[in-house]
């Protein structure tokens, strides 16, 4: 006997993500899902961003890693509350993990929650966490062709951050080719160029984030 199903395979995760979005909005939290390949500078970007935000907002981190707590310890050292999730080999975080972790941060209303996803440009793209913004960070040393190879993640990004721009003089990174690829997939995501080495561009990104957070809380 044939049974028609026609149901999305990740429908269960989507359902939890939708609930997360409602619940965290009720608690006036602003969630940002930070996605990038290993080594693109997720942790470094956050280490640069946090001091720009902390004066005006509570900030907490959910740290996703396959194993280890190296990154979590860096945030603890600067006094930022952090929840470590070790996926035990899993290549991404899912909405249920976020649902369990966010309340443990005990953040004040108006706070930012940065979710540092597992380093990977493929799997995290498919799993909605219930976040307000998806960050995709790419470093110039990874190459200008990444939007053409990792379609889904650039398509779903709300913000694209190009990191390690201080290395541009040493690398054949074609800005125009990169931007054309991003724009084909994504008309709206702003592209911020930053350098975690020099700090260039970080304040502009922080100001933009604060503005977005305020706009959400004003709704």
């Amino acid at each position: 006997m044939e049974v028609k199903v026609m149901k999305p395979i990740l429908g269960g995760n989507q359902c939890i993500a939708d609930t997360n979005r409602r619940d965290f909005a009720a608690h006036q939290l602003y969630l940002i899902n930070v996605m990038a390949s290993p080594g693109a500078g997720k942790t470094s970007t956050l280490m640069r961003l946090l001091p720009e935000l902390q004066a005006d907002h509570a900030v907490g981190i959910i740290e996703g890693d396959i194993a280890s707590s190296i990154d979590a310890e860096k945030f603890q050292k600067i006094g930022v509350p952090v929840i470590q999730i070790n996926t035990g080999g899993g290549c991404h975080l899912d909405a249920e993990m976020i649902r369990r972790s966010v309340p443990e941060l005990k953040l004040a209303p108006g706070g930012f929650v940065f979710i540092e996803n597992v380093g990977n440009l493929v799997c995290p793209a498919s799993f909605d966490l219930g976040e307000d913004l998806k960050f995709v960070i790419l470093s110039v040393s990874e190459g200008d062709d990444k939007p053409y190879k990792y379609i889904e993640i650039f398509e779903r990004a709300d913000v694209v951050i190009l990191n390690k721009t201080d290395l541009k003089p040493y690398i054949d990174f074609n800005d125009e080719y990169f931007r054309r690829g991003v724009r084909a997939l994504n008309e709206n995501a702003p592209i911020f160029e930053i350098s975690c080495k020099t700090g260039e561009g970080v304040r502009e990104l922080a100001d933009w984030l604060k503005q977005r957070n305020r706009a959400k809380q004003a709704c």
Binding site: M1, V5, I9
Partner: peptide
């Protein structure tokens, strides 16, 4: 992502993102 006909910039559609169970026997 350039158009093979005119070289214009392409844009993704829903086709290619599917991931669902259609039916079972």
């Amino acid at each position: 992502f350039d158009c093979p006909a005119c070289g214009g910039l392409g844009k993704p559609t829903d086709k290619g993102h599917e991931f669902y169970v259609e039916k079972i026997d």
